[in-house]
Amino acid sequence: MTDNSAHGLEAREDEWLAVRCQLGERAAFDELVARWHEPLWRYVRRVTAEDEAAREVLQDVWVRVIRGIVRLREGSKLRPWLFGIARRALMDRLRERYATPAAVPLQDFDLAADQDTSALEEDLASMQQGLEELPVTEREVLTLFYLRELSLAEVAEVLGVPAGTVKSRLFRARQMLRRDMDTKGRPV
């Protein structure tokens, strides 16, 4: 199966689930939770870097999903929609915590030369400590991308930035993580 057809199949599966939820089928909500609870937990947990905060955010995410799914217009975009909600819940949480969140200056980098990242991609979980020390923007983009649930375009949709900016953030995040690992002697 090619990537395109696999992606098309996933999109139809997502839409099928979303449409059934919009109809009000309880079984569809159960399937939605069974399918997406874990990936959302991994994203939220890694960005918050705290169990308790992640639990609260994830509960908030599910409430927003249940109440908001009737307004999802394109069911095939279920997964960026879900992660978009998770992201907004995380941002709201951060805003509550820091009344005036510090703006993170973002610069664009060229990712074309950055192809030696397979080690980073293999097991993000094993680098949890290094990941937790990254700024939120970098932690978020790495987590979203390496969850392997979203394409680059979908990550861009979730973050509300162009795909090029996602690439530049990934580049910077990986550089920062690598520097951190080198400094502390952890294997990359």
Binding site: R26, D30, V33, A54, R55, L58, W62, V63
Partner: peptide
């Protein structure tokens, strides 16, 4: 939200927790 998921000793909210949330929200 205090139960622990065996898959996550640190603990993600357990599925029963979310099921209860669904029951309440979808009543």
């Amino acid at each position: 939200m205090n139960q622990t998921n065996p898959a996550h000793p640190g603990g993600s909210p357990t599925l029963p927790d979310v099921q209860r949330l669904l029951d309440a929200e979808l009543s």
